[in-house]
Amino acid sequence: MTEYTPKLAGTVTKYVFVESPATTPADLALRAYEASEGVMIKETCFGLQVTGGPEEVDRLIRQIRAFDPNHIFVKDRGFPPGDPRRCRANLGGARPGYFGHEFEFPILRFISHGLEELERRGEEVLGEATREKRTKPVLDVRRLRELIELEES
């Protein structure tokens, strides 16, 4: 058994994702460096990973989120960036957690739209949440048969 001594104990790491037509991960990184004040920043293809004391990280996230509030998304990460147990530089290939990000990334634009609408329409949108979900018209079987026959003829 090997003894384990944690590195960067007491720090917090957060992912910052950007899915925006106006802000790129590079823009975000530049702005984050300007406001970093000792917070460690790692640039990624989807945004950033920021590591530091809890208050500093929260302050930095508040500042960078303000650039494009409805298109920047943040979540906690257990490992610090570059941790050899998790970093793909050591393991090869994408690490398992990215499959979850990959799944949710295409949904982010719907969430951004929801946030924008909420900001624009406020209480009116909140009312919609309780309204029964509108059902989309489904393809009628007879119409489907017609289409198949049309295609076959």
Partner: peptide
């Protein structure tokens, strides 16, 4: 405050003890 897996994992990663990769 969201309670997600990262909080528990962080707690383990930042606690000294026996080396037990990958998630301690």
């Amino acid at each position: 405050q969201p309670l997600g897996a990262a909080l528990s994992i962080r707690e383990r990663i930042q606690t000294a003890g026996v080396e037990s990769p990958p998630l301690q």
